[in-house]
């Protein structure tokens, strides 16, 4: 075990995967020589050479399109989109190509690739460095979508994603790269070295794609969360004195429906939280699944706490971000008799 930040854990996952399989290649903008603007690929080019890890032109369609071709050849590309906000030029390659190649060719060609991208706000990134577009991927048949919240999961899930035979969208909320950020932006962040989930096993291990994790056991209500909001929900529960059960979904597609149903049937109350915009967000899907499968266990209407349906503002990002106060208020609302 080694104490790692999420950045170090992601880098370590690359190291392990590239060491084990010479077919794994890593590329993207500033990914090679420099090691990525967030340093997640630092040292990989030096270690494995520039045929395994290299820089690309600024062309997201080119990065993903080339990755689809490489995967069809038989390699396992793991590419970085510098910010999730930059993925739109690659969206056609993701949706029409990577996601559907296996199906449209009846398994003649496949595209086992990983597309990593940092998501979420809270770094004064404004509208173009803050988005959480997970619902644009979960809506697409053929993609798997993973959102990580901590170093331990990040390493195990990234290795699993690289070894997976389907295209995996791997979302990294940048606000938890360096610690379990709980939404209290005015307080110093706790480093991962002081958090149990910052303890990362050495070498190879995987976490199954499609399995949720109970982040905190509780009996009052269930919080369905992923990414940064897992830690925000924990802070909110502790501050409100509410015994919340917090489910870290980890994978949105395929979704661990059993974990959700088990928890909501136990607590009878459900709060859905995410940083992405509310309308048609993944929370809508979660709310629908809960009412389909747990309606007669519910003692209160499901509540969603999300980003507002506006672009992510630069100066007002903490009014946009669904922080512990908004999440806490929703918990109190849910607990009203």
């Amino acid at each position: 075990m080694t104490a790692m930040t999420m950045i170090e854990a992601i880098r370590d996952a690359h190291l392990v995967a590239m060491e084990r399989d010479p077919k794994v290649v890593v590329f993207g903008e500033d990914v090679g020589y420099f090691g990525g603007v967030f340093r997640c690929t630092h040292g990989l080019q030096e270690r494995f050479g520039d045929h395994r890890c290299f820089d690309t032109p600024i062309s997201e369609a080119g990065i993903v399109g080339a990755a689809v071709g490489m995967a069809a050849y038989g390699l396992r590309p793991c590419v970085e989109i510098q910010f999730a906000d930059y993925m739109y030029p690659a969206y056609d390659q993701i949706v029409s190509e990577a996601a559907r190649l296996r199906h449209r060719s009846a398994g003649d060609f496949t595209s086992p690739l990983v597309i990593r991208m940092p998501t979420g706000g809270g770094i004064y990134g404004g509208q173009t460095h803050s988005q959480s577009p997970e619902a644009l991927f979960t809506h697409v048949a053929g993609l798997k979508t993973v959102v990580v919240s901590n170093p331990y999961d990040a390493k195990g899930l990234l290795i699993a994603a690289i070894e997976d035979d389907d295209p995996v969208i791997f979302l990294e909320p940048k606000r938890v790269y360096n610690g379990p950020f709980d939404g209290h932006h005015d307080k110093p962040i706790v480093p991962w070295s002081k958090h149990p989930l910052g303890e990362v096993p050495d070498g190879h291990y995987t976490i199954e794609i499609g399995k949720a994790r109970v982040h905190r056991e509780g009996t009052d209500l269930t919080v369905l969360a992923y990414g940064t909001l897992v830690h925000v929900a924990q802070a909110a529960a502790e501050e409100q004195g509410i015994d919340a059960e917090i489910i870290d979904l980890r994978t949105l597609v395929p979704l661990d429906v059993d974990a959700i149903v088990h928890s909501v049937q136990k607590t009878g109350r459900c709060l859905v939280v995410h940083e992405a915009t509310r309308t048609s967000g993944f929370g809508a899907e979660l709310s629908a699944i809960v009412q389909e499968r747990c309606l007669f266990h519910l003692e209160a209407p499901i509540i969603r706490v999300c980003g507002w349906d506006t672009p992510y503002p630069h100066a007002h990002e903490w009014s946009y971000f669904p922080g512990p106060e908004r999440v806490g208020n929703a918990m109190q609302e849910l607990m009203k008799p």
């Binding site: 290649v25 045929h51 369609a61 080119g62 399109g65 080339a66 990755a67 689809v68 071709g69 490489m70 069809a72 050849y73 038989g74 390699l75 056609d92 390659q93 029409s96 190509e97 190649l101 449209r104 060719s105 009846a106 003649d108 060609f109």
Partner: peptide
Amino acid sequence: SAKSHGFFSISGNLATQYIQAVGWAMASAL
């Protein structure tokens, strides 16, 4: 689609295959 005969699956969306061919060629060279 006919991998066995050197024929990549046709998308129906235009132009997407052009950069994929370059990626496939890069993979061969890599």
